[in-house]
Amino acid sequence: MGLQINQEAPDFEADTTQGRIRFHEWIGDSWAVLFSHPKDFTPVCTTELGYMAKIQPEFERRGVKIIGLSVDATEDHERWADDIEETQGARPTYPIIGDADFTVSKLYGMLPASTSGDAKERTPADNQTVRNVFVIGPDKKIKLILVYPMTTGRNFDEVLRVIDSLQLTANHKVATPVNWKQGDDVIIAGSVSDEEAEQLFGTWRAPKPYLRIVPQPS
């Protein structure tokens, strides 16, 4: 069975473009986003890595660290970064994991455990399942898993939106409704009784008894 939400993110040691790391130690007390790629020098991934470089300050403002992964060696990542900077106008300054031995991809269920051989002999299509986004909390538990096909570029603005929701709901007894964005009304969590809700929120709007709507807590 693959990884699931609220499961602890597997720890690992790996080489990155910024040196060797132990993943949990690298996360520290921060939130983290791990996003993976099937191979270096692939077109869609080139645009994604460049966009993440551009919006990295938005993640940092939320206390979130970014780390990439690609099924190639770190030396290839450095050469790829030149292309990313040239074509996308931004160079990744976050670490990118070298996973030429498939260790992390297999640990996170993105490649079968039986995967072996020389990464350079594999095509992007061979690794097409290595297209995941994992959002991990300071408790080292997985909060979100997204999996994209190779032909569809990822929406990292949506990842930021989800992180806003995750951080809000981790600190307040609320949930966020469909298409919620920062500043919109929220829903009082179902685990909160009316008595507790009155103490926490005062009054609320309730089109149904189970649908209690309040302004976003600050």
Rank of each mutant, 00 (worst) to 15 (best):
T129R: 12
V178R: 11
Q167A: 06
S114H: 09
P138E: 08
A113G: 11
Q199H: 09
V135E: 05
Q128K: 15
N132G: 09
S193P: 11
L144D: 01
K173E: 15
N132E: 00
Y148L: 01
D185W: 10
T203I: 00
M150I: 11
Q167F: 08
K173A: 15
A197I: 10
A113T: 13
D139C: 04
G202E: 06
E195G: 04
I145S: 10
V186Q: 07
R131L: 06
K141L: 13
G190Q: 09
Y108H: 10
S193H: 07
Q199V: 02
S193N: 09
E196D: 15
A175K: 05
S165A: 15
L146H: 07
G137L: 07
V192I: 15
A189D: 15
F156L: 00
S114C: 01
A125Y: 11
I136D: 05
T115K: 14
L160A: 06
G202C: 10
T176L: 09
T169R: 08
K120G: 10
L168F: 05
I163M: 08
L107F: 01
K173F: 07
V159E: 00
V159Q: 02
V133F: 03
T115M: 13
N127I: 05
T115R: 12
D184P: 01
G183E: 07
N155S: 13
T123L: 13
L168V: 08
V135G: 02
I163L: 13
V159P: 01
Y108W: 13
D184A: 04
I142C: 11
I142V: 12
G190C: 04
K141Y: 06
N171A: 15
L144S: 07
F134H: 07
A197G: 15
G190W: 03
E198A: 15
T129I: 00
T123Q: 04
F201H: 05
T152I: 15
A197R: 12
R131T: 11
A197W: 09
R131F: 07
M150Y: 00
H172Q: 12
A197M: 09
R154E: 02
Q182W: 09
K173G: 03
A119R: 04
F201Y: 12
V186K: 05
T151I: 08
V162P: 02
R154Q: 14
L166N: 08
L107R: 14
D139T: 01
L200V: 12
V135A: 08
H172N: 14
G190I: 04
L146C: 01
T129M: 14
D185S: 14
V135F: 03
G153V: 04
I163V: 11
K140N: 14
N179A: 15
G190E: 06
V162H: 08
E121F: 00
L111R: 14
